[in-house]
Every structure is written in structure tokens, then in C-alpha cells.
Amino acid sequence: MAATHLCFSVPPPIPFSSPSAPKLRHGPSLYCAGFNFTHKLSELSNFNRRQKGHQFSALGGDLLGDFGARDPFPAEIESGFGEKVLGSGNTEHRILIPNISALSLAQQECGPLSPFQPPLSKDDAQKLLRKVVGWRLLDDEGGLKLQCLWKLRDFKCGVELINRIYRVAEATGHFPNLHLEQSNQVRAELWTASIGGLSMNDFIVAAKIDEIKTSDLVPKKRVWA
């Protein structure tokens, strides 16, 4: 059987003076089958990457682009590409103080009301009701009211809760009607009598009352083994 001989033709290395030579200036290069390989890849880590204007080109037939950041080319600067992308350099950054609509009800303060001001509609009251916890709407003959009930451990805890609610309401100047019922139940009702219904002040006070600590006053839950 005749022997088969395989022949490989390896072109000579491309000199670094050639325009098509790789930009790596570290060690000799070998051109083989359309790929450029550095002779000393292990020395890449010691290469001075801080050298201005130096770029690493991806090796291989399909160029992956440059590694790391680079300065824009003059043609890119002339095209004004920076103004056509998000995060333009001239973006104005301002620290805005939140307005009253962005604050929670508990952070707002009660304001003066005119006797000619109309009360809140039932639709508006229903929307504001989502911002308070444990309160419900009462459609009374005198207008809409807010009502909340608390079940306490005993009479003493009921009196203590009424005192805590009073201290919060005193700071706002808008007082609810408070009732101690069945020796261990407190009922609070809020409305603005001067306008014959609910105002924003009623919801503000309700939100502030929601922040009162009651965990030490309510009955303890039983834990079953």
C-alpha cells in the first residue's frame, strides 16, 4: 500500500510593520489558518493596560470588538451620538421636596376649613378609606362619618386607649367622639360637623390614630401546643 503524505503550508509571520499586523506589541506572533495567536499569552497579565490609546483586539476570524473602555473617535463626536442615547451628559439632576400629595395621611397636618366648603363625596371618601386601617364609612342622617372599634383586655386598657387617642387628637386640634362600651370596647367616630360630613382632616386624624401602639392593650392570642 502506498504511503499517504500530508503537507501543510504555513505562511511566514506577518511583520509588525504591516498594516494588517495585530496591535499587540508583546511577543512574536504566528499566523496559521487565518488566526493570530500570541506566543506568550501568559505575559498578557503583565502588559501595561494603562498605556494611552492602546486597545486589545479580539483574536480570531470573527472580531468580537475591543475589550474595555475607549475614547470616542472624532467622527463619533461630530455625529453627536451622546445626545441620542439615554443618560446624556447634560441631564439635569434635581432633588425635589415631596409635595403634600406624596406624603402619607399620617404625615400631613389638619388645615382650617370654611363653613361653606362642601363635604367629601362618597366616592372620594371611599378612595381615602383605603389609606386608613380598621375604619369604615357610616352613612348617617347628618352625613358621612368614619368609625373604628377596638376590643381591649379590660376596662383599664380601654381608658388607656382613650387617653392615647386624646393626646394624638389634641396635637391636631380635630377631635373624634370617643365612647367606652361594654367595659372593654372603645368606639371612635370622626366627622366635621361644621360642613355636615367628612373632610380631609377626618382622614388625617384617623391615619394618625392608626399609628398608636395598641399591642399592649388588646387581648393576647392563645398559643396552642
Rank of each mutant, 00 (worst) to 15 (best):
H93Q: 10
F56Q: 04
F56T: 03
D62M: 09
I209S: 01
D140V: 05
W135L: 03
L180S: 08
A33D: 12
K221Q: 11
A106F: 10
E170S: 07
Q185I: 09
F35G: 00
D216N: 10
A21L: 06
W224F: 14
L103Q: 13
T172D: 13
R164P: 01
V132R: 00
D66E: 11
G27F: 07
E78N: 09
S88D: 08
Q182P: 00
K84T: 12
T214N: 05
A21E: 04
G34H: 08
M200K: 12
D202L: 00
S29M: 15
S9T: 12
H54Y: 15
G87F: 10
T91D: 12
K127P: 01
R187M: 13
L120W: 02
I209Q: 00
G60M: 08
L103W: 04
A21R: 04
D210V: 02
L103R: 13
Q126I: 09
T91W: 05
P118Q: 07
Q147C: 11
H179D: 10
Q108A: 05
D123M: 06
F16Q: 13
F203R: 00
E92S: 11
C32M: 13
D202A: 01
S121E: 11
C157H: 15
L128C: 02
K221P: 03
I95K: 11
A225S: 13
K151Q: 14
P219D: 02
L149E: 14
P28S: 11
R130I: 04
F203W: 00
S42N: 11
F37M: 14
I195Q: 01
I162S: 15
L41I: 08
L24Q: 03
E92C: 06
N163K: 11
S17C: 08
A207V: 03
L144Q: 02
R25N: 13
S121Q: 06
K145I: 04
D210G: 03
H26G: 07
Q51E: 15
I204C: 00
E181M: 09
W191V: 01
S114E: 10
A21H: 08
P28R: 12
G134Y: 02
P22S: 12
I100W: 07
V133T: 09
L6C: 06
P119E: 08
A21G: 09
G142K: 11
A102Q: 15
S104Q: 13
F175W: 07
D62T: 12
F116S: 14
P11T: 11
H39R: 08
H26F: 14
F203Y: 00
Q107P: 02
K213Y: 08
L64I: 05
P219V: 04
I204P: 00
S9H: 14
P19L: 08
L105N: 03
A125V: 03
L144S: 02
R187C: 09
L198F: 03
G60C: 08
E78L: 14
